[in-house]
């Protein structure tokens, strides 16, 4: 069972690596960030921390977009290429296929994240700045949770709509989720009872990637967060990942191929 899941995941990862999209995204993003670093706003050298924070956020967003695009096209591509017929003709359960696909996307997303983080760490050290390594590793872990969650979300959406719509919807939810946390805090005291109920519903229905964003803490070299924070964040991610994947399986289980 594990071998079959690993084989399916391997195809996703191999495609992501060989199609070179990830490298292009990383190179273009890094090139833009390097170009931006040459701009000296008001000659304020102290802005370098702000620049580092922006760089980390941009890298997170680029990883998120890569993950969403990879996840959303997995199943439609299988049908388009008709490879699903030969794959599912083998003794492979449909849930094994889905889980393998999701794990492959998560693996490719993490590969993309690893490239970004290597560039960021190297760039920071070359610029003579320091990194709090423990908080930096915690940042990477939280980003990995975000990748896993986004992959599950885009996967589910690709079951319900075509590739373009799935990518657009997943990215909209990602952006909405990114501002939702702060927006809820701001508007909470200004809305009525019904509004608050709506906020509570949104809080539980829409995943909030902002909760996984530790970029400011990395740049300002905060102390590492306690383990229970990472544990709760993991539970929070699983609270969305498990239902998304389960619902995807329910849709795929009896789907005509």
């Amino acid at each position: 069972m594990i071998r079959r899941i690993r084989l399916v995941a391997g195809t996703v990862f191999t495609e992501a690596i060989r199609r070179r999209e990830i490298y292009v995204i990383v190179i273009v993003t890094v090139a833009l960030l390097v170009a931006a670093s040459w701009i000296r706003f008001f000659n304020l050298a102290a802005l370098h921390k702000f620049y580092h924070e922006i760089a980390l956020k941009v890298m997170s967003i680029a990883t998120a977009v890569t993950t969403v695009v990879l996840a959303a096209r997995q199943l439609p591509r299988e049908f388009e290429r008709r490879t699903i017929y030969t794959i599912m003709a083998k003794p492979l359960a449909r849930w094994e296929f889905l889980l393998g696909k999701w794990l492959g996307v998560v693996g490719a997303g993490l590969f993309c994240l690893a490239l970004f983080m290597a560039v960021f760490a190297a760039g920071t050290l070359l610029a003579g700045s320091s990194i709090g390594w423990r908080i930096f590793l915690q940042f990477i872990y939280m980003q990995a949770l975000s990748v896993a969650l986004l992959a599950a979300l885009a996967f589910l959406l690709s079951m319900l709509m075509d590739i373009d719509a799935a990518i657009t919807t997943a990215l909209l939810l990602y952006l909405l989720g990114s501002v939702l946390t702060n927006a809820m805090i701001i508007v909470h005291d200004f809305v009525g009872a019904a509004g608050r109920v709506l906020l509570v519903i949104l809080n539980y229905v829409i995943p909030q990637p902002a909760l996984f964003d530790m970029s400011a803490k990395v740049v300002h070299e905060w102390s590492p967060v306690p383990a229970w924070v990472l544990g709760l964040s993991t539970l929070y991610a699983l609270m969305f990942i498990v239902p998304y994947l389960s619902f995807s399986y329910l849709l795929f289980r009896k789907r005509k191929l």
Partner: peptide, 21 residues
């Protein structure tokens, strides 16, 4: 069923495979 597919080899009408492999 997985048991049935374990003993079956299948070739579809249009055979396309992962082009990146």
């Amino acid at each position: 069923s997985v048991e049935a597919r374990q003993r079956t080899g299948y070739l579809p009408e249009v055979s396309l495979y992962y082009p990146f492999m």
